[in-house]
Nucleic acid binder design. Structure first.
Lengths: 167, 167
DNA sequence: TCAAATCCCATTGACCCCCATCATTTCCCA
DNA sequence: TGGGAAATGATGGGGGTCAATGGGATTTGA
């Protein structure tokens, strides 16, 4: 269950777009056949996730003091503004006009994997940003400290056939 | 069982409003075909929930000292002022005049999902507040610490590990 | 007996199902 | 290893269905 790679698909004139097969496969065992989308806080993009991830967010909010301002704000921003989008028979979703407008999407949509979640962009906006973050990363010489295998959840360990980044 | 998204429906001149299909579906397995509403203690909104959630509130009140002022107040505000509203044949409820007035609802009602519960608003009042929530969340750099999957309630977990990926 | 709540039916427009086509990729076999 | 065939994913579009809404008729309860 990992979203990887960038996939560009077409938004048709009915407002539909195919969810990449790879992403659908990653979501396969979900009870709800579809995805959730909500507006990104920082970017002109849409955040996407699975039903169980949304359940996780809700459960985590339950942990915060039920009456705290912070929980309120997060509930309004994430749960209140999210869209539950079921697939049609061909694995497409309908992008609500509100989200199309927010992400300034025109006739193409880029699905960008981010591990447990993914993002939707107007490809023309995403591309330069991606280049920029790439060079920043290189200049910084950033390194990622990997978690020991022993701390990984079962099923995510090497040995079992692992998907490869479709870069 | 998750309430998500914002759904704006019309209040007709008989005081009826359709409960969003998605919300009704989330409540499906409930014994009582309808919803509970009570006045929010912080906002000019109505809090909504299922029968079983109301049971949960009652149970939580039991835990508080039975004669404490706090328990008294909560019992009055929540249990005492809650309305049990059954659906009509088309999945609508009748919004009691008292609640319409409290939430300053006019001809439209926004159903806003908050995970285990939801809220009803006058859309014109809610919208700017939601915007404010967004910017606060952004400025605060709020991050939500996600609960480990292992602590999630049953049925909220991601599907069994995927042995094969459509390579 | 009147008012309010519930039932019932009609309308409409958005959404979803279905199928047809096109473009790739994969597979198979020479 | 190359070429062709088959499978699969992406795209386009028509039309039926159902959720949301409006309003009349009937029942209920004070």
């Amino acid at each position: 269950m990992l979203f990887t790679g960038t996939h560009i698909h077409k938004l048709d004139r009915k407002g539909r777009v195919s969810v990449p097969k790879r992403f659908r496969a990653a979501l396969e065992p979900e009870e709800f056949a579809g995805i959730y989308l909500y507006q990104s806080h920082k970017e002109s993009a849409l955040e996407g996730c699975s039903h169980s991830h949304m359940e996780r967010i809700a459960a985590s909010l339950d942990e915060l003091d039920m009456f705290s301002d912070e929980a309120d704000d997060l509930a309004d921003t994430i749960l209140g503004s999210s869209h539950m989008l079921p697939y049609d028979g061909e694995g497409r979703i309908i992008l609500p006009a509100e989200l199309i407008e927010f992400a300034r999407i025109e006739d193409q949509v880029a699905f960008v994997g981010r591990g447990r979640t993914f993002r939707l962009w107007n490809p023309d906006i995403f591309k330069p940003l991606q280049e920029a973050s790439r060079t920043r990363t290189l200049n910084r010489g950033a390194t990622l400290k990997l978690k020991p295998v022993s701390e990984l959840p079962k099923g995510a360990r090497p040995g079992a056939p692992n998907e490869e980044d479709a870069s």
